[in-house]
Amino acid sequence: MIEINNLVRKFGNKYAVDDISFLIKTGEIVGFLGPNGAGKSTTMNMITGYLSPTSGTVKVDNIDVFLEPTKAKKKIGFLPEQPPLYIDMTVWEYLSFVFDLKSCEFNKKAHLDEVCDLVKIADVKNKLIRNLSKGYKQRVGIASAIIGNPEIIIFDEPTVGLDPKQIIEVRNLLRSLGKDHTVILSTHILSEVQAICDRIIIINEGKIIADEKTSHLNQTLGQNNRFRVKIAGPSREVLNLLKGIHSVTRVTQDGARDGDAFTYIIEYSGSVDIRKMIFTALASKGWPILAMEGVEITLEDLFIKLVDAKGGNK
C-alpha cells in the first residue's frame, strides 16, 4: 500500500530523515513515535508530497508520489500539525471548498453531512472557523482530511493541545476510521500509540530504531517491571529490606515525605510477581503499604532500552 524506500531528506547539511524504509499494508493503523524533531513530520510531509525527498522513493499503491503527484494525492487525506483552516470561512464553506479542491465525485451535500456527523461537527457547521475552540478546529481539520474518502489517512499529532475528553473522542474516531482505512498517525505520547495502533515505528534523529507490532513491543519491553510503592516506616531500613528481596534490581526513593510515609520506586527483573514478596516482607516488620502501582513506561525509558538493545546487538 505505502512503500518507502531509502528515503533521505536533508535541510542544509542536517539530515532530518536519514535513509528510512518501511512498508505499510492496507488496513493497518501505524503510529510514528518519536521526540520532537525526530523527523516524523518531515516523513509525513514527504509521503503527502508537500516536501520532496533528497533521495529515495515513496509509492502509494505503486504510484510514485513524485512522478505522478496528482494521482497519488487523490488517495491520501492529510491533517498537518497545524490544521490548514481558512478562519474567515464557515465550517460548511470550508468543507465544501475542500470537496471541490479534491474534485470528489460524490453527492456533495450528502457526503459533507456524513463527514460532519462522523466527526461530530454538525452543530457548528454554520459558524465561522475563527470562532471555534481548538478542539472543534482540530475536528474540522480531521473532517477535511477524510473528505472524499481517501484510502490512506495521515494525521500529524492529531491530539496535541486537546483536553482529555477531546483526546479520548479523537482516539475513538481514529480507531473507527482504522476499520476501513489505512491510518498513519504521529505522536510523541507512547500510551497513545499503544491505545490505537497495530504497529509502531519509532524514529529518532531521522532513523528508524524500532518497527514492531504493538503487542510484540509491549511484551519485549516487559511493561510492568517497575512499581511505585508508598510505605509508612523508617526510610533507611525500608530501603534495605526492599533491596534484600529476591530479583529486585534497584530501589530508589521518589517524591516528598507524607507523614511518616515515603514513596519508593522498585525495579526488578524476571517474570516472578514480586508484589506478594514485598507485602509479606513489609508485613513481618509491621510497616504498612499505603499504595502500590505499576509505573508506566515512558518514551524516554523506551528509548534508552531500544538504544541499549541496539548497542548490545553490535
Binding site: T48, G49, Y50, P69, T70, K71, K73, K74, I76, F78, P80, Q82, P84, L85, Y86, I87, V98, L101, K102, S103, S144
Partner: peptide, 14 residues
C-alpha cells in the same frame, strides 16, 4: 502564513 498552503499543495491539483 496561515499554513493553508499545505492543504493546497497536498490536494490532487497541479
Amino acid at each position: 502564513r496561515t499554513k493553508t498552503d499545505q492543504l493546497l499543495l497536498t490536494s490532487p491539483n497541479s
